[in-house]
Every structure is written in C-alpha cells, then in structure tokens.
C-alpha cells in the first residue's frame, strides 16, 4: 500500500521535470527539470528496493540511487560548464534562441 504513495510521488516529480524541461527557456531551469527526472527515478529505486523482494543483494536499489545522485552531480558540472562557455559566445542562455544549427 505504501509503495503506491512513493510511485505517485515519483511520477509527479517525473512529470514536473518533463514539463519544466519542455517549457522553460533558460538553460539553468531546463537543467533543473533534468534533476527532477533523475530524482524521480532515484525515489523509485529506493522505494522498489525497500518493497520488492530483490534477486541480488538486498541493497541493490539503494546503491543504484546513490549512483544516480553522483551521476546527477557530474552531469550538472559538465552541463553548467558548457552553459558558461555558451554564455561567453551568445551573451544569454535562452536556449530557444540558439538556432544557428538547423536543417
């Protein structure tokens, strides 16, 4: 019963993340959307790790969640670095105006 609650929460987080990703123009806000998506899956992993019987080690889900947090951090670093570089070139970070490459 309690599992459902986690799943609903994570689904809501995921949806919010997708919406944020698709609707914001600022690159930083879009990255925040990505973080939400990643966190949604982390919640899922932890919840499943607690409630479903694991075939492997009992902490599979939790370990995976830790990796996701690490991964989110690494991705943020790389993405923010690129955002900075792009800012130097364009003097703004409105992604929808970055349309040099198309076709």
């Amino acid at each position: 019963m309690i599992l459902d609650g986690y799943l609903v929460a994570s689904a809501a987080l995921f949806t919010l993340g997708v919406v944020l990703f698709l609707s914001k123009k600022n690159a930083i806000a879009i990255l925040m959307g990505v973080e939400l998506i990643l966190n949604a899956s982390a919640i899922n992993f932890v919840a499943f790790g607690k409630f479903t019987p694991s075939q492997g080690s009992p902490f599979d889900g939790q370990i995976f969640a830790i990796f996701i947090i690490l991964l989110a951090a690494a991705e943020a670093v790389v993405a923010l670095a690129i955002v900075l570089a792009a800012y130097k070139e364009y003097k703004h970070i409105m992604v929808d105006q970055y349309t040099k490459l198309r076709g």
């Binding site: 997708v18 919406v19 698709l22 929808d96 970055y98 349309t99 040099k100």
Partner: peptide
C-alpha cells in the same frame, strides 16, 4: 498548456534547431 512550446513548429519542422522541440518530438 505544456504542449505550447513546440506545437507551433512541432510537426512541420522537426529538425528546427530548438532543443526543446526536438526532445518533445522524440517523446
């Protein structure tokens, strides 16, 4: 509401160069 970002160009010009339309299209 949330479809508003890409629906304008969405179907007609898939490779519009706007990242969010592209992601929307793949979704």
């Amino acid at each position: 509401g949330w479809l508003s970002q890409f629906s304008g160009q969405g179907f007609s010009r898939l490779q519009s160069g706007k990242i969010q339309s592209l992601v929307g299209a793949s979704l």
